[in-house]
Design a protein around this nucleic acid. Structure first.
Lengths: 329, 329
DNA sequence: CCCGTTTGTGCAAACGTGTACACGCCCGCG
DNA sequence: CGCGGGCGTGTACACGTTTGCACAAACGGG
């Protein structure tokens, strides 16, 4: 029922020690008498004292805050990863500050705001922010860039995703099934990752003397997948749509079935990317170029731990994608 | 390229003023010469100075951090709301700290950790934490409880959800369609919200002289919806399953169709709750008791703004649910 | 010309910790 | 008995801001 939070000096008064001793009682490896410590901890519990993390951060120069830059929270693929990351951070007593760099918000200003909070680590999932901006907004904490445009000369840690082999497998199967008129439904025009993903498939096609016969651009959402698929099938007579993510693939499949009255994969094969849980639901059963989200976040966490231990040497971890076969291709 | 962040005293040295003047240059309504301010801002840009928010928070007693307690990030319903809330907070220069109170993490300890950061506001979406715990972990910042068990004597702001009327509409239609053997598939046994939702439908049934013929409990996930639906249909011969959320409803529908070889809604009607975007996808087209997520978050934001303005008077906002009709009922 | 008011700036004290340093004490060894 | 050393604790400063107070200069009206 106490309105005001009690401070270490006040607790010291109550226990009859100095505030320094209070502090020592809360750091596990400090020189302090065992009896004193337990007396302090008991009093702390009684009066509801907890050390002020803001003050500690100011003193320590370590905030134990982590800025996590994402495009959106609703997007299922990102959501799965965010969930895993947040749990991993919490288990290490780190608190995540989510920066949602949607279209509406000013990305740079948002990151600058977070930077003033002296975050210990920065994890950038969004590739809407440029590497240059990231490093000069967070000059002191080297950001961890997640599958970003490779700029060799900048010394930041990155995680690369390699889907070339999986894309090759998928194209192999589709070609064997007689597909020839491939199209690519991208999720955004401005993202480097999106271009990279397309490249995996484009290369696989090129190896067989094929190329995309048409392209379309959506917004990584179900609705955009649905809408963009229609002209692709109509105009370019595509018989295989490679989608930038799973959600768009589901939208595209629905459009193919309901609006166009065709079947998948017989008339038009649909391929997704990400390997989100929803893709394997019975009603979707998507063929998708999938990423091991656990391994992915484990990699991020490993970089954070290394960083936490004071190792500033940047590193790059590469993960390869696998294929999940479903009913749509 | 500067490794260390520059401090206000150092910048003061460079400009030839005192550190107090630096501070004033950054607060819009402070007494400071216009020429001095612009000189300081120019230097700040040049040397990359930004006021340290941690130090400011310590001085101000206001951190501009908001603890957001959620059950999970992956869950689509929560994700949509989180997305809206995070955007609203960011627009007000508030930073969200997400506390993910999944099954694995120690909820209380996590909340205590966040409390040490002196968060300005607390928004509790999860009903896995008790009101008592919430108020004594955050004694100084009154939490905003989102649709929580109504404890009249505690003075916290809450947002109530009322779905009685919508449930009545839905039951009305189902009974008219000849359904009699209703079952309820809940998402968890321990949540008060879950019980409340069931009550809406139970009351509507009672008004027509009916009652649930069986109950099952899942985990708010697709898989659990899928798994739990099977015995419900088999053993209790249900012809209408009311599900605790939309994701479970989709799982239940898939089970009814694929595993049991029945059709929805002809053999078994399926009803969801939440009204997530996915529910209206063409492949789902769920009938669901839906909540206006925009209005919901607007209510939360209004409470936060009132709180931010120093108004500590607790308030309760009630929102009523509507019905979204789909192909499953 | 004088005095009251405004304007711009510096000084110093908070805010609540962590921790280096110093100091007193007790123990044990020579 | 003297002395070195470990142990437990207090004192004081630093962390980087904000802000009340003081003060000098400029200014304007009588």
């Amino acid at each position: 029922m106490s309105r005001k939070r009690i401070t270490s000096k006040e607790l010291a008064e109550l226990v009859g020690v100095s505030s320094a001793t209070i502090s020592r009682a809360f750091s596990p490896d400090a020189r302090i008498g065992e009896e004193t410590r337990s007396r302090i901890l008991a009093a702390a519990r009684k009066y509801g004292y907890q050390p002020n993390a803001i003050a500690r951060s100011l003193n320590n120069q370590r905030s134990r805050l982590v800025a996590v830059v994402v495009n959106a929270i609703g997007n299922p693929c990102e959501a799965e990863e965010q969930q895993l990351l947040v749990h991993a951070l919490q288990a290490r007593q780190l608190l995540p500050i989510i920066l949602c760099c949607g279209d509406h918000s000013d990305r740079l200003q948002l990151m600058r705001l977070a930077a003033t909070y002296q975050v210990d680590h920065v994890v950038i999932f969004s590739d809407m922010v440029s590497l240059r901006d990231a490093v000069d907004i967070f000059p002191t904490t080297k950001p961890i860039i997640v599958s970003f445009e490779p700029l060799e000369n900048e010394d930041v840690s990155t995680i690369r995703i390699d889907g070339a082999a999986a894309a090759d497998e998928i194209v192999d199967k589709l070609v064997a099934d007689g597909k020839r008129r491939f199209t690519y439904l991208s999720g955004t025009s401005s993202s480097w990752i999106d271009k990279l993903r397309r490249t995996w498939f484009a290369d696989a096609l090129a190896r067989r003397g094929l190329a995309f016969v048409a392209d379309a651009t959506g917004t990584y959402t179900y609705d955009s997948g649905f809408k963009e698929a229609v002209p692709l099938v109509h105009r370019s007579k595509t018989d295989a749509i490679i989608c930038g993510n799973d959600v768009m693939a589901i939208g595209a499949r629905d459009a193919v079935k309901r609006v166009l009255g065709k079947s998948a994969p017989e008339d038009v094969a649909i391929v997704g990317q990400d390997g989100i849980a929803m893709a394997s639901w019975d009603c979707n059963d998507l063929t998708t170029l999938s990423l091991d989200h656990i391994a992915f976040i484990n990699a991020v966490v490993e970089l954070i731990e290394r960083h936490e231990a004071g190792d500033d040497k940047p590193d790059t971890i590469t993960l390869t994608c696998s294929t999940r076969w479903g009913a749509t291709a």
